[in-house]
Design a protein around this nucleic acid. Structure first.
Ligand SMILES: [Zn+2]
Ligand SMILES: [Zn+2]
Ligand SMILES: [Zn+2]
Ligand SMILES: [Zn+2]
Lengths: 140, 140
DNA sequence: ATGGCACACGTTATAGCATAACGCAATTGA
DNA sequence: TCAATTGCGTTATGCTATAACGTGTGCCAT
């Protein structure tokens, strides 16, 4: 039905939400997404949250806990750790000046945290790593 | 088990909020704290948030971003990294079954993230590390 | 002492984030 | 076909956090 299909498995609402995040140059809150999609028939927060839940489950979108906001995954189709969408634990550097978000993966950090968890008998399900600060461009 | 001695520099409201967190066996939301302190004259969220802001600034309380909740610092008077209250970047393992929180510090993780930031010209101000999962006791 | 300042406090109102609960429609698969 | 599942739309509600206003108190430079 829809030409610009991002992922054929996505529903219409999911596609709209993902494309909104993908077009954005920074993280968006659920309510900001809602406002952007009112012209496409979105009327209530749940329409956004339900799509975000699925997109997050698919690994196409990440939630930034320290911002209560969401970003499209920057890793696209690359795979390095063989987990799900293409990465194990992912980390974010969030510029508090320009809102730019850098998504990255650090094996060493991942392994150290895994080791710590093993040593404590703790079974991780999801790990959040977010660095707030000032990006290179804004520091200049 | 908990040191009854709070920082003498604390105001009455700050002491009350800190003691509530210190008594708790898990993270508390600001509104939960508010409810616990109604008998002590607390009437509005701002009374709690203002105290939490200061306590966080003092390093006596940590905010768990993935829970929108707060915990008393588990490090007490120990100092290992020479920063502020006694630690640099701190990490948390949060049990999704029993809500127990383990606070820890991992030099290696800290240094790797610092190195990454340096290499990208990113100036960190605050780093959040939170592992959600199942603790040893609950996994048994 | 007195004016100015910084800071904590109290209160009301509002903004921002997230989910509960209902019913309906389309899809799937036994 | 019929039940189960999933997505959808809507209304209402709940949880989290801050804005904006004013009060009082201690401190200190004038
Ligand atoms: Zn990603
Ligand atoms: Zn920036
Ligand atoms: Zn601590
Ligand atoms: Zn547990």
């Amino acid at each position: 039905m829809n030409a610009p299909i991002v992922n054929p498995a996505l529903t219409k609402n999911q596609s709209l939400v993902f494309e909104a995040l993908d077009r954005a140059d920074g993280p968006l809150s659920a309510y900001t997404i809602l406002d952007k999609l009112r012209d496409h028939g979105f009327r209530a927060p749940l329409q956004v949250y339900r799509a975000l839940d699925k997109l997050t489950e698919f690994g196409m979108v990440h939630r930034l806990e320290s911002l209560n906001a969401f970003v499209a995954c920057a890793h696209r189709e690359s795979a390095c750790c063989g987990k799900g969408h293409g990465h194990g634990t992912v980390a974010f550097a969030i510029c508090e000046s320009c809102s730019q978000v850098l998504e990255f993966h650090d094996h060493e950090v991942d392994h150290h945290l895994s080791d710590w968890a093993s040593s404590k008998g703790f079974k991780p399900s999801k790990t959040t790593i977010e660095i707030r600060g000032i990006c290179q461009k804004c520091a200049a």
